[in-house]
Design a protein around this nucleic acid. Structure first.
Length: 273
DNA sequence: CCCGGAACCTGAAGGC
DNA sequence: TGCCTTCAGGTTCCGG
């Protein structure tokens, strides 16, 4: 489930291999993944263009092209980009293939068919509504407080809302809330300044740890070379069904919030202080 | 605008 | 063995 650390890893490991390359072919077996007038138009607009740079915004991977356009990918739950993959990694679920001018091939693998591609002149057409980047210097506890002010929704839902803060998803939201000792059902505007400061620090800590470990391969996510990330081995509550809290030993609880599994420790993260 | 729930997707895993 | 249910969840859409 690629969230900020996973997409950051994909960007870091792929861009050096893509910059200076131009596209010589594009095929897809799942037309709905191409957000464009048609697959043929998309291919025509892409072929011959050279990658000049790129970046990550939230969970989106942006590749700049030499004609001023931008190729943007979103991996949703199960997507990954594989460069010159091992044959056993592409036996199933390949939804698109990019051919590059040096003979390299980039495969978009996506079992659940939810990943998407865009080709736009202004990235804001795709990422324009995203909230602040949590790892940039401008993201302070005060900024977080401002984003939560007046919001009655559960803090867990707000952390996963990309217009509130960009890049945090279900796994890292659970980890950050555990680290900050905040119950996921607490309403956003009920958090004290001290709790918001703890939460701010926890978000930075869990995202940085995730990047250091090249992302979490709890499920389908793999790095562009096919290797798995290791961040999930450090998770304290996320997905840890049947485990006990590493701090107090209380069984980890799971409740659905917005139809997403939320894992937390009911003792360390009390609903009522 | 805000909130919550459904829909899109399909494979893995567990129960019976 | 095989059928059924649950779980995985990022984003968009829709009704209240």
């Amino acid at each position: 489930m690629p969230e900020l650390p996973e997409v950051e890893t994909i960007k870091n490991e792929l861009l050096p291999r893509l910059i200076g390359r131009s596209f010589t072919g594009f095929t897809t077996t799942w037309k709905k993944m191409v957000n464009y007038s048609s697959v043929d138009d998309f291919r025509t607009a892409l072929l011959g263009r050279t990658v000049t740079g790129g970046s990550r915004r939230g969970k989106y991977f942006i590749m700049n092209l030499n004609d001023g356009n931008n190729l943007i990918a979103h991996f949703k739950m199960s997507g990954s980009l594989l460069l010159n993959p091992r044959p056993e990694d592409i036996e199933r679920f390949i939804r698109a293939i990019f051919d590059l001018d040096n003979g390299d091939r980039l495969y978009f693998r996506d079992p659940r068919k939810m990943g998407r591609l865009w080709l736009v002149d202004d990235p804001a057409q795709v990422v324009g509504k995203l909230g602040p980047e949590p790892l940039e210097p401008g993201f302070t506890p005060e900024v977080l407080a401002g984003r939560l002010k007046g919001r009655s929704a559960p803090i867990k839902a707000l952390l996963c809302d990309q217009t509130v803060i960009a890049g945090v998803g279900n796994m890292y939201a659970d980890e950050a809330l555990f680290s900050a000792r905040i119950h996921p059902l607490r309403s956003g505007d009920s958090l004290s300044p001290a709790e918001i400061k703890r939460l701010h620090g926890a978000i930075l800590q869990v995202l940085r740890a995730g990047i250091k470990d090249k992302g979490a391969s709890e499920q389908d996510y793999v790095r562009p070379n096919g290797d798995k990330g290791t961040a999930h081995f450090s998770f304290l509550v996320a997905h840890r069904r049947g485990h006990n809290c590493p701090v107090c030993g209380t069984p980890i609880q799971r409740i659905p919030i917005r139809n997403r599994g939320s894992y937390f420790c009911p003792k360390c993260q009390p609903l009522k202080p």
